[in-house]
Computed example of a mutant assay.
Amino acid sequence: MSIFDQIKNMAHNHPTVKNMADKLGIDQETAEKAIAALTEGHQAEGDTLDVAADKSGIDKGILGQVMEHVGGEGSLNGFMQMLDKDHDGNPMNDVADMAGKFFGKK
Rank of each mutant, 00 (worst) to 15 (best):
M1T: 15
M1D: 09
I3S: 11
I3V: 15
I3Q: 04
F4E: 14
F4N: 14
D5V: 02
D5A: 07
Q6S: 13
K8W: 02
K8G: 02
K8E: 12
K8H: 11
N9Y: 03
N9W: 03
M10R: 12
M10E: 15
H12M: 04
N13A: 03
H14N: 14
P15T: 11
T16C: 09
V17Y: 03
V17E: 03
V17Q: 00
K18Q: 15
N19W: 01
N19S: 13
A21L: 05
K23W: 04
K23Q: 11
L24P: 12
L24S: 10
G25C: 11
I26S: 00
I26R: 01
D27K: 03
Q28K: 01
T30K: 12
A31C: 08
K33G: 00
K33V: 01
I35F: 05
A36H: 01
A36N: 06
A37G: 14
L38E: 08
L38V: 14
L38M: 08
L38N: 09
L38R: 09
T39Q: 04
T39H: 03
G41V: 14
G41M: 08
H42K: 07
H42W: 06
Q43E: 15
A44F: 08
A44L: 03
A44M: 07
A44T: 09
D47Y: 05
D47P: 00
T48P: 05
L49N: 09
D50V: 06
D50M: 01
D50R: 01
V51P: 01
V51F: 11
A52L: 05
A53D: 09
A53P: 08
K55E: 15
K55H: 09
G57E: 15
G57T: 10
I58P: 10
D59N: 14
D59I: 04
D59Q: 13
D59P: 02
K60S: 10
G61D: 15
I62A: 00
I62T: 14
I62K: 06
L63R: 02
G64T: 02
G64H: 07
Q65S: 15
Q65N: 15
Q65R: 10
V66T: 06
M67Q: 13
M67H: 07
M67R: 08
V70H: 04
G71Q: 06
G72A: 10
G72Y: 09
G72D: 10
G72T: 15
E73C: 05
G74P: 01
G74T: 06
G74L: 15
S75Y: 07
G78Y: 08
G78C: 06
F79S: 09
F79E: 13
F79I: 13
M80T: 13
M82Y: 14
D84Q: 08
K85P: 05
H87F: 13
H87D: 15
H87G: 04
D88C: 03
N90F: 00
N90C: 06
N90E: 12
M92P: 00
M92I: 15
N93H: 11
N93C: 03
N93D: 15
N93S: 09
N93T: 15
V95K: 03
A96R: 09
D97E: 14
D97S: 06
M98S: 13
A99K: 05
A99F: 08
A99W: 00
G100Q: 11
G100M: 14
G100R: 08
K101H: 07
K106Q: 14
K106T: 10
K106E: 13
